[in-house]
């Protein structure tokens, strides 16, 4: 059990970087006009307004839906490619370089290609989200599959399980921690890419709203919309952490960390 003093110290440590950023911002706000550095109170008021105004909040939801759809698609396709690569050397030799190549293409280039290749806005955004997350998912799932302990796999195999039994008893629990980490990482990346993707003529979403604020030179608005995505990422990470703590209760918790 942690001492109460310890908990308070942890909380202070957690808050310190944000407090420093907030103070720096406020100092800037006192010294520059509000269209450059609006006071934090104004920013948070705007952010709260977006949250409680249904007409605004649907834009946040639209963006979240785009992130999740892209990630889900990338996870399914990337995971599929990883399973193929894990099963056959030939598949790995083929897909490996292809995925590396895709990973090297900048997100902005995909935006350009998407505009040329697709007509519908949603199709364009889905394509961009998919193609920018797919290689990472594929490599992460492949890494997880390769890290399945061979001796445990052989032990389960010695009971002659069906493919489904092997998957449920051995493969899934063994790859799950790395899959969750992959989701964490890709969620962060995807929420940065999505606003770029939404610049391709979306008539809704956080990216579209950001563009509006830029045209009105409304810095408080731009920050408030940006915060919506940050909030979403924090919320999602918190959910994933909660899931992890529940799913991995079996792990030995070291009393000292690294």
């Amino acid at each position: 059990m942690k001492a109460p003093g310890e908990t308070a110290r942890r909380a202070a440590e957690l808050a310190a970087p944000f407090a420093v950023m907030a103070i720096a911002w406020e100092i800037a706000a006192w010294n520059f006009p509000p269209f450059l550095f609006p006071p934090l109170a104004a920013v948070f008021r705007r952010a709260a307004q977006i949250l409680v105004t249904p007409d605004d909040f649907v834009h946040v939801l639209a963006t979240v839906a785009r992130i999740l759809a892209g990630l889900a698609g990338a996870f399914i396709l990337g995971g599929g490619a990883a399973v193929l690569m894990g099963r056959s050397r030939a598949a790995e030799r083929f897909f490996g370089p292809v995925l590396n190549f895709l990973q090297g293409v900048p997100a902005l280039s995909w935006v350009v290609f998407a505009i040329i290749w697709f007509k519908g806005t949603e199709q364009r955004i889905f394509f961009i989200m998919l193609v920018t997350s797919l290689p990472a998912f594929a490599f992460q799932v492949l890494g997880a599959l390769k890290a399945v302990p061979k001796d445990l796999f052989e032990m389960v195999l010695s009971f002659r399980p069906t493919k489904t039994q092997m998957f449920r008893a051995m493969i899934l629990p063994s790859v799950l921690p790395e899959i969750l980490t992959a989701w964490r990482v890709n969620l962060g990346n995807a929420s940065r890419v999505v606003v770029v993707a939404e610049l391709v003529g979306a008539t809704g979403g956080v990216g579209y709203e950001l563009l509006q604020q830029q045209q009105m030179f409304d810095m408080a608005g731009a920050l408030a919309w940006t915060l919506q995505l940050v909030f979403f990422v924090l919320l999602a990470q918190w959910l994933l952490t909660a899931l992890e703590t529940r799913a991995f209760a079996w792990r030995a918790a070291p009393e000292r960390s690294l």
């Binding site: 001796d151 445990l152 052989e154 032990m155 389960v156 010695s158 009971f159 002659r160 399980p161 039994q165 008893a169 051995m170 629990p173 063994s174 991995f248 079996w250 792990r251």
Partner: peptide, 27 residues
């Protein structure tokens, strides 16, 4: 056939009883 391996090879994510029941589960 059941094997007792040189090292225990228990599944770390399963309790002792769930580990011990693995063989029948596979049946």
């Amino acid at each position: 056939i059941a094997i007792v391996f040189q090292n225990d090879r228990l599944l770390p994510w399963r309790s002792a009883i769930a580990n011990a029941g693995l063989g029948l589960e596979m049946l």
